[in-house]
Each structure stands twice: as structure tokens, then as C-alpha cells.
Design a protein around this nucleic acid. Sequence first.
DNA 1: GCCATTTGCATAACGTTGTGATATATCTGG
DNA 2: CCAGATATATCACAACGTTATGCAAATGGC
Lengths: 145, 145
Amino acid sequence: MEQPDRARGARALRDLTVLLTRVSPRAGLSRTAAGTLGRLAAQGPTRITDLAVQESASQPAMTGLVKRLEAAGHVVREADPDDGRATRIALTPSGRQALDERRAAVDAALRDLIDRLSPDHQSSLLAAVPAIEELVQITEDHAHA
Amino acid sequence: MEQPDRARGARALRDLTVLLTRVSPRAGLSRTAAGTLGRLAAQGPTRITDLAVQESASQPAMTGLVKRLEAAGHVVREADPDDGRATRIALTPSGRQALDERRAAVDAALRDLIDRLSPDHQSSLLAAVPAIEELVQITEDHAHA
DNA sequence: GCCATTTGCATAACGTTGTGATATATCTGG
DNA sequence: CCAGATATATCACAACGTTATGCAAATGGC
């Protein structure tokens, strides 16, 4: 009797995907922009190609995104001391602030959502948080390349 | 001691949003396209304005999307017998198939993900499914307008 | 029954984000 | 030092979104 549960779980997660993307405020940053700023915050200056791979985007897409983020003052380019071809992209205080604001806005929206659940469902959702964190961990590793 | 849990839950859901959108295969349909086809499958022929409201899109965006879906053979337009201005958009067998394939692909990816969780986390995630379903319900109602 | 308003959709002009193909500069190994 | 490989930029294009606007059909007051 496990298979039907897994199927139901997959369907619930599928619906949840739509829900979360709809509920999350953009707060001035596209999904890819927010993801990229998050990377930079977590791992420091990074080359464009690496960012593209990590965000599952093409290199031209990342070049364009970086150009826009640079125009917005959220990142700066710095020459890679070891490689004349490469550019390292670094977060600026403005970028850090934009990231923080976006995260705060999304978190607030999600907390509102959680608050509207019945108490039982609230606790079962919170009980699943470690599982969600493991999911995040699993896919993080998977995207390590 | 509830607030920290809620904050952690919100953060987990925020990370989950990124994860789910990254893991879900597009399978040839954009998010809005899949959502629209899903509506049509669930509720039958629908006018463009209603679709736009339900998918939280502008009317011109929906007009453009319908045009592309029509070109792909996934929907057809039929005149509204009661209103000469309106067009009713209906799903075709091809659209139904595209929707089914997309759902199957996403579900398979999500099941794979769930399978890679440790058993304890699997069961806590499955235990949270009713909560997720309530979340979906809540936001569905919210978008009823 | 007629005209003003509202409604449903299409279109135009535009910005962002994505793609693949290709150019250019730099590095690296023989 | 030269032949590839690699890092980035650029180009042409498409999908998808926005606001503003136009037009035809419906509607309601008179």
C-alpha cells in the first residue's frame, strides 16, 4: 500500500509547485536573479560559466542576467587574477540587501500561508520540515557539478 | 517556541520552491501553459478573460498564450453562442495528451525525489500530504474571483 | 428603439528572460 | 609556438509578460 501514497505525494508536490510560485512575491528579482544572488552570497565571487551551470541556465543567459544585475548595482565584475578570460562576479551591498528583502518578503508570504492551516495540518507540515531540508540537500548535491 | 518553527518552515518552503521548479521538467509546456490546459481539462471550454483571471495573468498575455496553444494544436476556439464578442477555448485531444505527458513527467521526477529520502523522512513527508492539500485548497479558494 | 457605457478580445509597443550559433580572446599541452 | 580547449560576449530569435489602446458586441436608461 505504499505506491498509492507515493503517487498522491507526488501529485501534492506538483500542485504545491504551482502554489508556491504563485504565492511568492517577486520583490523585484526574477527566480534566476534571486537564485544567482543567493549563490554569490553563499559562495563568494564566482565565474559566469559556473553560475550558469549551477543555476541550470545557458551561458548567454547568465551573461545577460549578470549584465542586468550589474546595471542594477547588485553585482560587480572583477578580473580573475588567474585567468585572463574569466570574470568573477561578486555581490555588492545593494545586491545583498535586495536578496535579504526578497527572502523576507517570500518568508512573510509563506508564514501567512502556514498560519491559515488548521492546527493539525500545521504541525504535520512542520514535522515534515526536516524531510524537506533533506530534499534540498539531495538536489543541492546533485547540482554540485 | 512556535515562532522559530514557523520561520524554519517558511525557509524550508522557500528553498522547496526553488527545488521543485528546478526539478520539474517543462515537457514542452510553460508553467502558465500547463496551468491553463489543466483548467480547461477540469472545467471545460472557458472564455479568455476567465482564464486570464484564474491564472493570474493579464488578458493580452492569455490571448497570446491561447494563440500559441492554438498553433500547437492543443486548443481550439469556438464561438460563444450567447455572446458574439466572446470566444470559448476548448482542449483538444492533443492538448489533453500534452497535459497528461507533462503531469506524468513531473510526477515521475517527484517520485524519484521522494524515493531518495530516508524512510523516516519519507513517512513524515507523506504525513504532510493532507496539509499540502489544504494549502492548495486555501489558495484555490483565494483565487476564486 | 437609440445612444452611452461596459465588456470581451485583439493589437501595438516594449522589456525581460531564455535559446543556439558563432566570434574573440586567452590558456594549455605537446 | 601552434593547435585545440575554454571563458565570455554578441547576434538573431522566440516565449512570455506588461500597459495602453482600438473596436465590435452587449446592455441599460430613457
